[in-house]
Design a protein around this nucleic acid. Structure first.
Length: 240
DNA sequence: GCCAACGTTGGC
DNA sequence: GCCAACGTTGGC
């Protein structure tokens, strides 16, 4: 059976040493300029949360457009779907079944998403999101266990994400390795996140600019600390 | 399965 | 560089 491929396994193994990540420094034209990097490695964990959300806009001293991202949301399809004859299904259960519960996040073929991938730092946490399925939403927490390095599937003609225009000397696409951390205490549906987003947009709140809604098709999205904390705090609430 | 959103491609 | 055609994503 075809392996999941959207982002999947195959070589993952976190501590395998790769010659290193030689990210091409190409600077492909990117379609955006956002991305900012964080810098503090350990993503903390959260808890508390959103009590400080209000300050975000006012603080940041003088430049508020300098948002720092240190958390992520990774979309993956939990239901089977063929892409060039290969099943791209990769659910959180598939992730948990990997050696070390770790996988390489390959197959990303969008420049903006790739750039975010390249700015990910070791130890940062991300939400594992199920998309294109009956119940879209967040199911688990994962963390970055290996920073960006060339995505080998771009050179594999049999891979659905093969890119004939990419050269080994200067790979266009990158991937990171991510490891399962834990399931969220409950499934956090998109509908619920969206309801909060709409409310925050109207009245202010941490989710008012969440990329899930402004860049709906991006498969790799950054979250601010406030967004991450707020969303995570939802796991403590009763499902509505 | 439909279709809106939106990224990419390519003619000019 | 503009923009229409086209392809993909992903909610519903």
């Amino acid at each position: 059976m075809p392996w999941p491929s959207r982002k999947r396994d195959k070589g993952a193994v976190a501590d395998k040493k790769e010659p290193d990540a030689k990210i091409a420094k190409t600077e492909e034209e990117t379609s955006d300029k956002e991305e900012e990097k964080s810098s503090k490695p350990p993503a903390g964990s959260s808890k508390s949360g959103w009590k400080n959300w209000k300050k975000k806009e006012s603080e940041s001293g003088g430049e508020e457009s300098k948002i720092t991202y240190c958390h992520w949301l990774l979309k993956s399809e939990p239901e089977s779907r063929l892409e060039k004859g290969v099943d791209v299904k990769f659910s959180v259960d598939d992730l948990k079944a990997q050696p070390n519960q770790t996988t390489c996040w390959d197959g990303v073929r969008n420049y903006q998403a790739r750039n975010f991938l390249r700015s990910m730092k070791l130890g940062q946490q991300a939400f594992f999101y199920h998309s294109n399925c009956k119940e879209p939403g967040i199911v688990a927490l994962v963390k970055i266990v290996k920073e960006a390095y060339p995505d080998h599937t771009q050179f594999d003609q049999k891979d659905p994400h093969y890119d004939s225009t990419s050269r080994k000397e200067n790979p266009k696409w990158s991937m990171v390795d991510v490891q399962f951390v834990r399931m969220t205490k409950r499934f956090i549906p998109l509908s619920e996140i969206k309801a909060h987003h709409l409310a925050h947009k109207a009245n202010g709140g941490p989710l008012k600019d969440m990329m899930l809604f402004s860049r709906q098709r991006l498969s790799i999205q950054p979250l601010t600390q406030e967004e991450f904390d707020f969303v995570l705090s939802l796991e403590e609430e009763k499902p509505r």
